[in-house]
Design a protein around this nucleic acid. Structure first.
Ligand SMILES: Nc1ncnc2c1ncn2[C@@H]1O[C@H](COP(=O)(O)OP(=O)(O)OP(=O)(O)O)[C@@H](O)[C@H]1O
Length: 679
DNA sequence: GGGTGGCGTGTTTTT
DNA sequence: CACGCCACCC
């Protein structure tokens, strides 16, 4: 049976799969079967009788984790004991659920997302720029800088930022919250300070694999080191050309130093591409060759020649969308399926026009990323409600919903309750339930106190209902708090109510699935999943290039190839180019790229020029772009040492130079640009 | 003291 | 355009 698993692999891949003990680095280009190799290796280890629960497979994004899970499970016969295959953050979450008590915290902590984090920071700091502070704090955590260390730094504002950092950490601690960085940092801290735990954990996960290793940052690397404390069985796969998360601290150093950090590393290079046609590969490879900082690698196509990728130029985004829809319909007429198509873009905001167009054309689509389901305000409200019901002392959730739907409890009242709860050292909910009616009335007034007491009673009541019947809970909940109704009068109320119903549906399905399932476990499960499960039925996928990494589609459309959008303004050009490489190499058999002359963005329409990547990849020939680079253009007067004066009639790129067709007084000659001087 | 509307600003990308 | 914040009005 082990033979079966291996049969679709080439010898190098098989060799990598069969490597069992000791560190291994697989370094290979797009579509070379890295993920296939690692998922097969997972199945192979299990087929040898290795305990699945001792194998840990990690990657960075949810999407990639899901894809791997899908692929790996199809190779494993008996999935009764599933191996742990998840994102780094999810692993951190699971680890903390078991061990956060060792840091003196309860394990029903809640994860704050980026929005929550900014809200908290804003409440703690009025002067400094919040996004700056948020990213500084993130940097601190990712570089193991404690509050004390931050205090003695000497950068601008460092003292102020360190103070906010301290206040923020205290706030998280008091309210039993963790942020995304904590999900990596706290496990590391625990493993760092507790040798026994480190040893146990490392022994538990005796085989470790990491996909998309080029996306790991320093903290993730250190965490991996800890997990390898008592063994060296770590296999990582990556591609320096697909490193697209440097902006959040991912460092290629992790790949470069891998064979120094671990002993006797087996290095495997996969050099055949099994995904894309030669045509697609050619342009992707040509594009990425413009990057200077590369390890460099071969990538040989194995598929058919294929068609040259199409390039569309449109006047604006409406016309761009029309062209793409026309192509989609043509593909459908040829029997192709929507599930095999995807539209990619650099910036999520660009999806709007596409959505409108697809809707009008009655083409099903699924939007991936962007404003995520579980990050929508109404969904976060519901989660906060459920958390309050499960744990009324969760101040953070309590504060979110105490006036949602509006019941007349404004900021001032909330602040007063919070102040009192702090002096009494009890939760806000306990403040309402325990503090004497006289004291409370004096503080916040009779009417507000009554409202809060009613709210308290409702919480008890719904807790009771939940105890008796999980199924009745949802209906009663919504009636009792008039939650859905509160969105009715909003201008986008319908959408929000649809989201709410969907969330109720998800919860209901989850509760039905297993007798043991309850609200608390539901909250745990969704706490890191960003998008809901795919609906079945055919739909074209719309997503950012970042989310597309690790995926593949038969037909790929990349839109928005304009200077300023892609490559994005002020972004690191090499990373942008890698994004281009990722985008192009998602395609199996057809690739279509598109740019517009003007686009509506952030409230205004601006004129755009086509992306340099179109020329760099060879998809388009120079044109006006060349003028800038070469400073040679049609009509320019030039001088040649032998032929004398002439006029340029045509400019063609030739390697790093240009071939010029020059008219020397009636004699036309082709001359390399380095042999003439412009006048 | 709370709620609503007007105004200003601008996240690239993910967890 | 679209969201979030503040100020002003109820
Ligand atoms: N030896 C092989 N023979 C045939 N097909 C293969 C082989 N190896 C991989 N493939 C196929 O090639 C495609 C790309 O593989 P995979 O997604 O594992 O590549 P990857 O290196 O992870 O790509 P990327 O880095 O771009 O995500 C998949 O459809 C896979 O099934």
């Amino acid at each position: 049976m082990a033979k079966d698993i291996l049969k679709d692999l080439n010898p190098t891949q098989q060799d990598a799969v069969k490597h069992i003990d000791g560190p291994m680095l697989i370094l290979a280009g797009a579509g070379s079967g890295k993920t296939k190799t690692i998922t097969t290796r997972l199945a192979y280890l299990i087929s040898l009788g290795i305990d699945p629960s001792s194998i840990l497979t990690l990657t960075f994004t949810n999407k990639a984790a899901k894809e791997m899970k899908h692929r790996a499970y199809s190779l494993i016969d008996d999935i009764t004991i599933p191996p742990l295959l998840c994102t780094f953050h999810k692993f951190g979450l699971i680890f903390l659920k078991f061990h956060i008590q060792k840091l003196g915290r309860k394990n029903n902590f809640m994860i704050v997302d980026t929005d929550d984090k900014k809200r908290i920071l804003r409440s703690l700091e009025k002067e400094l720029e919040i996004p700056m502070v948020a990213s500084m704090i993130s940097k601190f955590k990712n570089s193991f800088t404690s509050v004390e260390d931050a205090m003695i730094l000497n950068d601008t504002n460092s003292k102020e930022v360190a103070n906010v950092y301290e206040a923020y950490e205290n706030y998280l601690h008091k309210n039993n919250l963790v942020d995304f960085d904590d999900l990596l940092f706290l496990p590391y801290k625990l493993l760092m300070q507790d040798d026994k735990l480190c040893e146990e954990t490392s022994k538990k996960y005796n085989y470790i694999m990491v996909d998309e290793y080029q996306d790991t940052n320093e903290l993730q690397f250190k965490l991996l080191q800890k997990l390898c404390h008592s063994h060296q069985n770590i296999s990582v796969v990556g591609d320096d050309d697909q490193s697209i998360y440097e902006w959040r601290g991912a460092t290629i150093k992790n790949i470069l130093n891998f064979d120094k950090e671990f002993k006797d590393v087996k290095i495997v290079k996969l050099e055949h591409n099994y995904r894309s046609t030669h045509e697609i590969l050619k342009y992707a490879n040509t594009l990425i060759e413009h990057n200077q900082d590369r390890l460099g690698k071969k990538l040989i196509g194995t598929k058919e020649q294929g068609e040259k990728p199409k390039v569309y130029e449109s006047f604006n985004e409406t016309l761009e969308t029309q062209k793409i829809i026309r192509d989609i319909n043509a593909l459908l007429d040829n029997g192709e399926e929507l599930n095999d198509m995807a539209i990619l873009y650099r910036v999520n905001a660009i999806s709007r026009q596409l959505e409108d167009g697809l809707t009008k054309a009655s083409i099903n689509y699924k939007l991936i990323g962007g404003k995520r389901f579980y990050e929508r305000a109404e969904i976060k409200d519901l989660i906060a409600y459920f958390r309050t019901i499960a744990e009324p002392n969760d101040n953070f959730s309590f504060k979110r919903i105490i006036n949602q739907p509006k019941r007349g409890i404004g900021k001032t009242t909330v602040d007063k309750i919070e102040g009192l709860s702090k002096t009494k050292n009890i939760s806000m909910f306990e403040t309402i339930s325990q503090v004497s009616s006289d004291e409370m009335t004096a503080l916040i007034g009779k009417k507000n106190y009554r409202t809060l007491k009613l709210f308290e009673a409702s919480i008890y009541e719904i807790q009771d209902i939940l105890k008796n019947s999980k199924m009745l809970f949802i209906d009663h909940f919504d009636d009792m708090f008039e939650f859905k109704q509160s969105f009715k009068k909003l201008f986008d109320g319908e959408d929000r109510i649809a989201n709410i119903d969907e969330f109720y549906g998800l919860l209901r399905d989850y509760l039905i699935k297993d007798e043991k399932n309850d609200i608390a476990s539901f909250l745990n499960i969704i706490s890191l999943s960003s998008d809901k499960e795919d609906l079945d039925g055919g739909a074209i996928s719309l997503m950012s290039i970042h989310s597309s990494k690790g995926l593949e589609y038969k037909h790929i459309f990349v839109v928005g190839l304009e200077e300023g959008f892609f490559p994005l303004l002020n972004a690191d050009i090499q990373e942008e180019r890698r994004l281009g490489y990722v985008a192009f190499t998602r395609a199996k058999s057809s690739l279509t790229v598109s740019f517009v002359q003007n686009r509506f963005y952030k409230g205004k329409r601006s004129n755009l020029t086509k992306s340099r990547f179109l020329v760099e990849s060879g998809l388009l020939k120079g044109g006006f772009k060349m003028k800038k680079i070469s400073s040679f253009a049609k009509g320019d007067a030039v001088k040649h040492n032998l032929f004398g004066l002439g006029t340029i009639e045509m400019v063609k790129p030739a390697g790093s130079l240009y071939k010029l067709k020059i008219n020397f007084g009636g004699n036309k000659r082709e001359i390399m640009s380095s042999f003439v001087t412009k006048l």
